[in-house]
Simulated assay, not measured.
Amino acid sequence: MTEFHQDGRAGIDAELVRRLIADQFPQWADLPVTPVKVDGWDNRTYRLGSDLTARLPTHASYVAAVDKEHRWLPVLAPHLPLEIPEAVAKGAPGEGYPHPWAIRRWIAGRTATVDSVEDLDEFARTIAGFILALQSVDASDGPVAGTHSFFRGASLTTYHDETVEALAVLKDRIDAERAQDVWDAALAASWDRPPVWFHGDIASGNLLVRDGRLAAVIDFGTSGVGDPACDLVIAYTFFSGSSRSTFRDAVQQDDAMWARARGWALWKALITEDVQVIETVLEDR
């Protein structure tokens, strides 16, 4: 039997999925199991026939998303203007695999890229509308930002030490003084309102396009309720020029929210040494 490690993806393959399905969901045992073309890091995903997927967390730190998404995706879906994953079933540890896992409905579409989107300004307005609709969903009983969301939706102070260390590493490659000012402004612009729903990873890899238009938002593993500033990071990582301005206008957030959004974008770009995004963040006024 395969030995699984807490810090890697080794051992998760189509054969494992076939065994798990045969043991726990025999009604689907005859369906073909194939890897998806574009996979993520937090989960390994496999097509199960033509209508379903099996998603297996690659590490214990991603396991909380299984129950969270199974509980909340059906609550969120009726309120949102775009398709989101549909929770079908939950699998249990088995066949040597140590984590719970999920079966979802397959969503057709291409991963969003600048080339796959027909009209970036329309795309920006559509994403903004999705974010606003998500924020309007009743958050009173939702999962409060914390470890399960990797502190998306919580205070940026969680990542202060990491940011300071990354600034020191990159000080000769970027305008470190300007970056420090942006980070300080983000920390000073604290969230002081009731929590709202956030997705936590509004990024091109989690946006699906059909016929050149945004059709679905996937992967709610870092979702929760709290400060939604993290959902604005796409302004710096995907949009530019008129589409960035369109997104800013359509999403209707205040200056303090944008200060924190810049902080989120800066933190991630610093720790991944993405100088291009860092420069984009620093140019924003």
Rank of each mutant, 00 (worst) to 15 (best):
E3I: 13
D7S: 13
R9L: 08
A10D: 14
G11A: 11
I12F: 01
E15Y: 06
D23K: 14
D23E: 12
Q24L: 11
F25Q: 09
W28P: 12
D39R: 00
W41P: 03
T45P: 02
R47L: 13
L52D: 00
A54Y: 02
A54D: 09
S61R: 06
Y62K: 02
V63A: 14
A65N: 12
V66Y: 02
L73Y: 00
L73H: 01
V75H: 14
L76C: 06
A77G: 09
P78N: 02
I84W: 03
I84R: 03
E86L: 10
V88P: 04
K90E: 06
A92N: 06
P93Y: 02
Y97M: 05
P100N: 05
P100F: 03
A102C: 10
W106N: 02
R110S: 12
R110E: 14
A112Y: 01
T113Q: 09
S116A: 15
E118H: 14
E118N: 11
D119K: 10
E122G: 13
A128S: 14
A133F: 04
V137S: 07
V137P: 02
D138M: 11
A139F: 04
G142I: 06
P143V: 00
F150A: 14
F151L: 00
R152M: 13
G153V: 01
T158L: 04
H160K: 00
H160V: 02
E162Q: 15
A166D: 04
L167T: 08
K171V: 06
I174P: 12
D175C: 09
V182M: 11
R193T: 07
P195T: 02
G200F: 11
I202D: 04
I202T: 05
N206A: 08
N206T: 06
L208I: 01
R210A: 05
R213G: 05
A216S: 15
V217L: 11
V217W: 00
V217T: 07
I218Y: 01
D219K: 11
D219Y: 07
D219Q: 12
F220V: 01
F220P: 00
S223L: 06
V225S: 12
V225D: 08
G226A: 04
I234E: 05
I234C: 11
I234S: 11
A235S: 14
Y236P: 08
T237C: 13
S245L: 13
F247G: 07
F247P: 07
D254G: 15
D255C: 08
D255F: 06
A256K: 15
W258G: 08
A261Y: 08
A261N: 11
A269P: 09
E273P: 00
D274N: 15
Q276W: 01
D284N: 08
R285M: 09
